[in-house]
Write a protein that binds this DNA or RNA. Structure first.
Lengths: 192, 192
DNA sequence: TCATTTGCCTAAAGGTTTTAGGTTTTTGCA
DNA sequence: TGCAAAAACCTAAAACCTTTAGGCAAATGA
């Protein structure tokens, strides 16, 4: 049948997009391959291992798309391109996006997952090159960017923005504008 | 034994803080009460119903704390107070905080949950009274605020900020400063 | 007093996780 | 070519979670 850890992770990612990440189960995956459940345990340590593998696939894929979007752009263009990648990835692959935020409870992170995470923060730092920020403001700004992107996308996905006008799609570019404007005039350290 | 939906929700919230929201299970809760599992099904429709009840408890509790923090404050003070409530709630009650973001997949939301959600957005809107924003900027700003608060707190909780200096606690006040500054100078509509 | 409701129980069916051990096929090497 | 070892998948079984069905006993209230 040609199963492997890699193959299971990719199939699991597809399954996550179809039924939701928390519905992804070793059993469901075995069913999809028309194979006995126990067979998967040769390729995957346990259920959590499977989830971490899916998370790694998703985080890496997202980093690839982010890198492609940021390449050759700077300043506001780069900021918008990066933000749009996160948002559209979450929209087209909700299960994968949820997976990408799955940090194993046992704090036993794979090196590959950590590396993908590092790529993300480096891409944000690259975007910030178009603005004039020194340390520690640059780190603060990376964290702000991550928070806004992740927060907006998560809230939108969970339907939190569906109760008010205008559509969540309309706020997004204006929020990116606001962040761009903020980065261009990052405030000095407030006394007290 | 004096069980009830209310009581189970509160006990479930405590359990969530101890073992994590996704480890909260009807069985575990029954064990905690020293009672047979099936007994809980008189008070709770099913496992998802239990989770929604816990989510409602958490979202309401958080709204209460937020309201208390914002009362009597305006402008930057109110902004910082509100943000700090979210962050400290998530720190001291990680399970409850996670629960508060649990929207039932079946899109069958309880009225109480929706009401608590509305209180949150109204509190943010109240904070924005200290700044000079008209529609639709006010709605955009509410969404930005929600994104930053939720995003930062989530990323911090999941350990995403633990890989770089300075500590995540140091970035937080500077980010609130930045948001305050942004709200005071919210940009005009960018011409494409 | 007695019928009803309430609250918890036993029993049982079905699903997921994980381990243990078996069989068959593939692979690599002498 | 022939064979030993590894790889891939299987059956069996134990443990736990979810949910439904039906029972008993105590509290309630007319």
């Amino acid at each position: 049948m040609g199963l492997s850890g890699e193959r299971l992770a990719r199939a699991g990612a597809e399954l996550a997009d179809e039924v939701g990440f928390d519905q992804v189960t070793v059993s469901a995956l075995a069913r999809r391959f028309g194979v006995q459940v126990a067979s998967l345990y040769s390729h995957v340590r346990n259920s959590d291992d499977l989830k971490v593998r899916i998370a790694t696939v998703a985080l890496t894929e997202l980093a690839d798309q982010a890198a492609a979007a940021v390449a050759g752009r700077a300043g506001r263009d780069a900021l918008v391109a990066l933000g749009d990648v996160y948002r559209s990835y979450a929209t087209t692959h909700p299960g994968r996006y949820t997976a990408s935020r799955y940090a194993p409870p046992t704090s036993v992170l794979g090196a590959e997952f950590v590396a993908a995470g590092k790529r993300h923060s480096e891409l944000m730092r690259a975007v910030l090159r178009g603005y004039d920020l020194d340390e520690p403001a640059a780190t603060d700004a990376v964290r702000l960017l991550g928070s806004v992107f992740h927060g907006y996308v998560t809230l939108e996905l969970s339907g939190s923005f569906s109760y008010s006008e205008p559509s969540s799609g309309a706020s997004w570019p204006r929020i990116l504008d606001a962040i761009d404007s903020l980065l261009r005039t990052w405030p000095e350290r407030h006394s007290s």
